[in-house]
């Protein structure tokens, strides 16, 4: 393998309900920085059915070139046809780096591509950098067991591939005047030869606000003591109109289901306010919430690592403090609402 043949930073563009998935726009933002540092092009690979018109969006968010595979066979994500298309694209145009969102689809596709090419794949990266002169990708991720990070390299194979969690990177502000090249590609795929078929897609709307979209997240940890103690987290969230988050240990204890887990193996959240209550602050948790605008920690251990990663901290017993908070918010929030309504009336008068 001649490493110099491989050029350009690429992002696999995930499409959901006819739109570009937010994580792909975030990766274009991250990819743009890598491409500029390396002095090379940023490419997006767009696979789907009726998706060609999404290319301008990708240019606006930083792409220089978009490779398009548009065919009805790609109507639903399936490993086999998507993999064939992406392999074709990699073999024909030889990117130096290929990034994927660490979503169910991105992980599935990346694992298959890594095996077939073959090349190295780093999972759940949280920090990306590139060596300007060699093009070596420095992909860092939290590593097992504690507050450590590992930087992973793939020296001898190309492309260098990584999956990156949603909401870890930042999308650039879109520039609608940016344009780029569209490269349309086709491969021969026959539906009769596909070994999997999607029979039905069932959407389950979650009744509570989705935790990754909520403005306020109240998250509780093992420090709440018990499933009953954890009820206080639900109550505080209710009063604040917030979504409920949890540490992994809480999920494993069965106090709440996995949808609520924040962190490396859960959801990444970036709310306006994040409460971490009775959460120790292990790196795997921190990576899932560190980009929140305002982080408030309550913990009875003054040395808990969470206090390193918060904006405001309270040392104390959550089982005592949270009920007080609930009571006081219950009193104060209606007053705020009332004053807002009053102002509204004045404006209408």
């Amino acid at each position: 393998m001649n490493l110099a043949d491989y050029q350009g930073i690429w992002v696999y563009i995930e499409v959901k309900d006819g739109k570009v998935a937010p994580v792909s726009l975030e990766l274009l933002g991250a990819g743009r920085k890598l491409a500029d540092k390396r002095g090379t092009e940023l490419g997006g690979v767009l696979i789907g059915s009726g998706i060609k018109e999404l290319a301008p969006t990708l240019f606006a968010y930083g792409a220089d070139v978009v490779y398009v595979y548009d065919d009805p066979i790609f109507a639903h994500y399936r490993t086999e046809p998507y993999m064939r298309a992406l392999l074709h694209c990699c073999q024909k145009y030889k990117p130096e780096v290929l990034l994927y969102g660490a979503t169910p689809t991105g992980k599935d596709l990346a694992s298959a591509i890594a095996t077939d090419l073959p090349t190295g794949l780093t999972a759940d990266t949280t920090i990306l950098d590139i060596e300007e002169d060699t093009g070596l990708l420095l992909a860092s991720r939290p590593a097992f067991g504690g507050n450590i990070m590992a930087t992973i390299l793939c020296k001898k194979y190309r492309p260098q591939m990584a999956t990156v969690r949603p909401k870890v990177m930042k999308a650039l502000p879109p520039d609608p005047t940016r344009t780029g090249r569209i490269v349309e590609e086709r491969i021969e795929l026959r539906e009769e030869e596909m070994r999997t078929k999607v029979l039905e897609v069932v959407r389950q709307t979650v009744k509570k606000a989705r935790i990754d979209e909520a403005d306020i997240v109240v998250a509780g940890g093992k420090g709440m003591g018990s499933k009953e103690g954890f009820q206080l987290i639900h109550e505080l969230a209710d009063v604040l109109g917030a979504a409920v988050g949890a540490s992994r240990d809480v999920v494993e204890a069965g106090w709440i289901d996995h949808h609520h887990q924040v962190g490396q193996t859960g959801v990444t959240v970036t709310p306006k306010i994040y409460f971490a209550i009775g959460i120790s602050g292990a790196i795997q948790h921190i990576v899932g919430m560190q980009n929140s605008e305002l982080i408030i920690a309550i913990n009875k251990d003054p040395n808990a690592p969470i206090f390193q990663s918060c904006h405001y901290g309270i040392v104390g017993d959550a089982l005592e403090i949270v009920p007080l908070l609930i009571k006081r918010f219950k009193e104060e929030i209606p007053k705020l609402k009332a004053s807002a309504d009053a102002k509204e009336e004045i404006r209408h008068a």
């Binding site: 090349t119 190295g120 990070m149 590992a150 930087t151 992973i152 390299l153 982080i295 390193q308």
Partner: peptide, 16 residues
Amino acid sequence: PTIVSKIWTPPKPKGG
């Protein structure tokens, strides 16, 4: 193909 080049402790944030 992948190697762990280094293991490091992220710089401690200043704290709140």
